[in-house]
């Protein structure tokens, strides 16, 4: 476990790189997902108003 965290001394590099990668893609996913949800909400509202 220790070896995993310290990564042979390169820990700050590896973890910052992997961290940046995953944080960025999660943000990318969430932003777009929320945008989609907002559109679906608008569509639902319009459809409900019609009926």
């Amino acid at each position: 476990m220790n070896e995993l965290i310290s990564m042979g001394g390169y820990a700050p590099f590896i973890w910052s790189a992997y961290g940046f990668f995953f944080i960025t893609i999660i943000i990318l996913f969430i932003t777009n997902f929320l945008r989609l949800k907002k559109r679906e909400e608008v569509l639902n509202k319009i459809n409900n108003n019609r009926d």
Partner: peptide, 18 residues
């Protein structure tokens, strides 16, 4: 993510037409 973005465009289009 690409599919999600496609769906956003599709919905935008639908909303616009309505």
């Amino acid at each position: 993510v690409f599919f999600i973005r496609l769906r956003i465009e599709i919905l935008d289009n639908k909303i616009l037409r309505i």
